[in-house]
Nucleic acid binder design. Structure first.
Lengths: 198, 198
DNA sequence: TTTTGTTGATTGACGAGTCAATAAACATCA
DNA sequence: TGATGTTTATTGACTCGTCAATCAACAAAA
């Protein structure tokens, strides 16, 4: 039954399965065999396409980051004004998709992994860099005409706040509340920028 | 050579060793045998005293939280005024001890664990509850005489900010900078409360 | 002689990664 | 067109290692 051109299909299936299994287990303690079974193939095939477990994890992380990046870009595209762009980034960060079990599991374990696996750290740096750049860009017109430093420093603050709020919302018992998360970051922004604008 | 009263000594050694090994591995992927070896005893003895691996982890987490709690309490004891107490809590949260490799490892993996192990979640709730209570208490005199809600909401914000800043500082390449972390939270507080007082 | 401390050896299970083998699609050329 | 060779897809079975947990046995203190 070997149809040709299976590679991308199988890889995609394995990425999906990896994310799903991480969410189910809550940790990276997931066997290749579990992943392969969920993706509907043998472990040997999984190894054939990815070469090893770690590379499956990394591909899964890359996928999560890609989705997130697309979400932010989409929200940014229709946002109006600097404040609108700021809000768009925050909203995208707390979208329902980011609070799905599997995605939360991916993020938490991603942080753990980033401490020891260089490629994971690289991915994390890319994510943080992009976020910082987006935030700085949106903030620049909003901070006083004073020092140029301020937008960057504020972006760091907002970035940390986003991570912190996400962490807490993701860990708390019960369903996560994206709107509350947005409100929390928004309050921070209002305090720092004054409440002019929408 | 069986001396009596070994139990507390061995347990303490195992807790230390567990924390250390988690830091070394960067994850919970640590074998009982590694822990036991570092603690200078056989795996069988480790099992004898703790019954299983998970219980060693939990004891280790409990220990980390105990140290942190003591640090906060100590800092609070000598703090002056509401603003001083606030700062004391923040400083304790970013003390050098909390940025040691092992402790960072413990926290990161603790968050992962809290999603699936009830006892870990309980511990996390205790930590967050205590932090919130401490912050609320220190904030109450500082927020306007208006609604009583505000101190609690602000405490949540500060709590999230602390977690977020800690996460980023812990994950970034290079040595973590506790002072910068404190400054970041302080800026948030200043924005929310106005900059009166020390 | 009962309790406490201690370990070497063992068990039973599981998991990552490899390999040899099979089968279908495709390519080439006589 | 048919024969032959090549690449891609796919798996079952296996290797080699590891690990948590248990047990039987020994030592010393009370």
């Amino acid at each position: 039954m070997p149809k040709l051109g299976m590679e991308p299909i199988r890889k995609a299936a394995l990425v999906q399965a990896t994310i799903h299994e991480i969410g189910r287990a809550g940790s990276l303690d997931v066997t290749v065999s579990q992943i392969a079974r969920r993706a509907g193939m043998s472990t040997a095939l999984a190894h054939h396409y990815f070469g090893g477990k770690e590379q499956m994890f990394l591909a899964a992380m890359r996928h999560v980051l890609t989705l997130y990046g697309a979400e932010v870009r989409g929200a940014l595209a229709t946002a109006e004004g600097p404040r609108g762009r700021l809000l768009a980034i925050v909203r995208a960060s707390f979208s329902p998709g980011n609070f799905r079990r599997e995605v939360v599991g991916a993020w938490l374990n991603f942080w753990v992994l980033a401490r020891t696996v260089p490629e994971a750290r690289r991915l994390l740096d890319v994510y943080q860099g992009r976020l910082r750049s987006n935030l700085t860009h949106a903030l620049r017109p909003l901070v006083g005409t004073g020092a140029g430093e301020r937008a960057g420093a504020l972006a760091d603050g907002v970035g940390a706040m986003i991570d912190g709020v996400y962490l807490r919302e993701a860990l708390k018992a019960g369903a996560p509340d994206g709107a509350a998360a947005v409100a929390m970051v928004r309050a921070y922004l209002d305090a720092e920028l004054g409440e002019s604008g929408a």
